[in-house]
Design a protein around this nucleic acid. Sequence first.
DNA 1: CCAAAAGTGTTGTTTCTACACCCATGA
DNA 2: TCATGGGTGTAGAAACAACACTTTTGG
Lengths: 254, 254
Amino acid sequence: MELIMEKEKIIDRLMNGEAVYQQGISIDCVIFGFHDRMLKVLLNKFNVSDKWMLPVGLIMKDEDIDAAACRVLKKKTGLDSIYLYQFHAFGSTVRPNLKEHRDILLKLGLRDENHWIAQRFVSIGYCAFLEYSKVRIRTDGDEELRWFGIDEIPPLYSDHNGIIEKALSVIRTQIRIIPIGYKLLPEKFPLSELRNIYEAILGRELDRRNFQRKILSTEYVRKLDEIYRKPGQKPAVMFSFVREKCEEALKKIT
Amino acid sequence: MELIMEKEKIIDRLMNGEAVYQQGISIDCVIFGFHDRMLKVLLNKFNVSDKWMLPVGLIMKDEDIDAAACRVLKKKTGLDSIYLYQFHAFGSTVRPNLKEHRDILLKLGLRDENHWIAQRFVSIGYCAFLEYSKVRIRTDGDEELRWFGIDEIPPLYSDHNGIIEKALSVIRTQIRIIPIGYKLLPEKFPLSELRNIYEAILGRELDRRNFQRKILSTEYVRKLDEIYRKPGQKPAVMFSFVREKCEEALKKIT
DNA sequence: CCAAAAGTGTTGTTTCTACACCCATGA
DNA sequence: TCATGGGTGTAGAAACAACACTTTTGG
């Protein structure tokens, strides 16, 4: 929950965090990207842990939780996203996997089991959609960030696997309402890419023609004049999202 | 957020709560009932406040948040409900309306602005559906509980009006997926009652015949042999929910 | 010439919506 | 007898699913 900070600052913040951060609550971000025909999730690993985890963050005492989620996102990816969506709060008492958690703290030299950071946390799950190519992966010494295909996610810290599952399940139920894919793709894209995203989220193939008809019947996507070329394939026309319509739709669900 | 307890215990719990309760988080319950053709919400008022509010509760340090929501529900209504659904977390920093909040604490004699209970809270919104007639309204001296029609809700404490709006909006998007009305109606009911619930939630009238066709095409409701009689009307057949199907559906969304 | 993926249209099925007439009851 | 609401069925519109053949390209 709390291993968000660069290690040089970790100890310091842990010691002073009680005054700065809302206690007992964290933000867990499920950050989606799309690359190479695969829907991917950005995961985080600290050297002090042997497990990957979702990028997480704390909430400052005077900070809105949505703003905190934005801040975490920005910190991890360098990007802002208006497509940041709170999907569930997790608060099982077994969830923080306290032993696992405390082991990490021990490695950091924190032996106080009553330390605020060693207590149970409630976490609030956000999902975000980002353009893969714009994310600059940062790999300084003590922390690693890496994209994982949603079918290739290893066992994660605490209940983070379940949190990703829940995010996907919420997105699946919303896929008919909101412009999924907006913010996940570059400005211009061939429709097959968008279809691939839908297929990845729904976990099944979609009919090319029916998909196109349906997407164009919404006002979220429009056809461009440009042509997309890929070796060994017939050139395809490009499409782009209609920003105003998409953002309007996103506002409604926030 | 915190005025959940009977007054005789309030001060005591406020003083000792730091050890018992998860700090900075509360549960807000939007409890729906149906009576007299109206969808209603159960609201709470403490004598120390002049505003109505949602029933709220705190989370104990070793308690799951879902369990905490159950506990609040049970305490306020005497009922358990499996139809208790977490719909959103609220964490704007302006939301607790700190001044309003502190005024109440002042009336209780708490002048310490740094007291844990006087800080910003994040609250987790749950909605519950209960059978109106089974709820025993409790009105001991210091607290009042009353049903309000969803069109007759007064300005509430903090952002509680917005929380109710959000609950309704989430339910509206789910109304096609889950068996709304289950747990809101008695064992046996004429279909018009269920239709009234849908109409109240959606805010528009529904065609009687189309509604019946659609409901019966799900497996959530079945026709009974019994007859419902109401003065001045043609007798109607009764229906009942198919418990297994409903609970199965509810599990999926939890 | 082959593999890969794009372009294009139709048809049957299902689902949704709108709508009208008669009936049983208690006042 | 009247007002209230229940019982019942159909027809047109819209949305959805299934489906095949041809084209362009690079290797």
